[in-house]
């Protein structure tokens, strides 16, 4: 309880620092997620069109998922040095597998009869992608983004280790100073953010899923 009290005291005295760190944390997470989505959704769609290569690539990616986030950060760090940019690259890499795999699976699993009907009626590949495949694949793709989001929000904490800022700073400092209160200033919001990301992103997913069924 004493730790929580000291955390609140710290927060009251350093509100500016906290909000700034929270802002950086969210920015970092959102930007990484956006980059990962922008790269992985098209890549996943493309992979779904060439099943042989796609399957092989997905297996490799699934295997790579076991590499922990800290390891990714450490691996990128020597090439890009300190700072938020390095953290963003590492977090984007972390966010990629769930988005890529879900996109691939979503576009692969569209009912072949639906596609045959679409082609048979004279829809162009672009029309089929926009009007048929993407709406049908959307819920699964969004589930992938949701998984990636909670992973990224949690892992963005690690950015502080390489000077990327964010809520991790409090944790790093708390650990260094052996100050549990300071640790909680970073730790509790990160945990809440991860839950919030999961919860908020399941709303649009639910809406899209309902539309399809």
């Amino acid at each position: 309880m004493a730790a929580l009290e000291s955390a609140l005291t710290y927060l009251a005295a350093n509100a500016d620092r906290f909000w700034k760190a929270l802002g950086i944390h969210l920015e970092l997470a959102a930007a990484s997620l956006a980059v990962a989505a922008a790269v992985c959704i098209p890549l996943g769609i493309w992979a779904a069109r060439s099943p042989a290569a796609g399957n092989w690539a997905m297996n490799v990616i699934e295997a790579l998922r076991v590499v922990p986030s800290l390891a990714v950060l450490i691996l990128v760090f020597p090439y890009l040095g300190f700072g938020a940019r390095t953290a963003m690259v590492a977090l984007s890499i972390l966010a990629s597998p769930p988005i890529l795999v879900n996109t691939y699976v979503a576009y692969r699993n569209i009912d072949p009869a639906v596609l045959e009907a679409a082609v048979g009626m004279g829809m162009t590949p672009g029309q089929i992608l926009r009007w048929i495949e993407t709406p049908l694949a959307a819920p699964v793709v969004m589930a992938g983004i949701r998984t990636a989001a909670s992973e990224v929000v949690a892992s963005a904490t690690l950015a502080a280790f390489i000077g990327g800022g964010g809520l991790g700073e409090f944790i790093v400092n708390g650990l260094a100073m052996n100050n549990v209160g300071l640790l909680l200033v970073g730790g509790i919001p990160v945990a809440l953010l991860a839950l919030l990301a999961e919860g908020l992103l399941s709303i649009p997913e639910y809406v899209v899923r309902r539309r399809i069924r």
């Binding site: 009912d111 009869a113 639906v114 596609l115 045959e116 009907a117 679409a118 082609v119 048979g120 009626m121 004279g122 829809m123 162009t124 009007w131 048929i132 709406p135 049908l136 539309r211 399809i212 069924r213």
Partner: peptide
Amino acid sequence: SAVELRRRIGYVIQQVGLFPH
């Protein structure tokens, strides 16, 4: 073009293939 041709020919299959969304 195949696309134009198909728009002038109705096509019905056993599994129907209605767009579920």
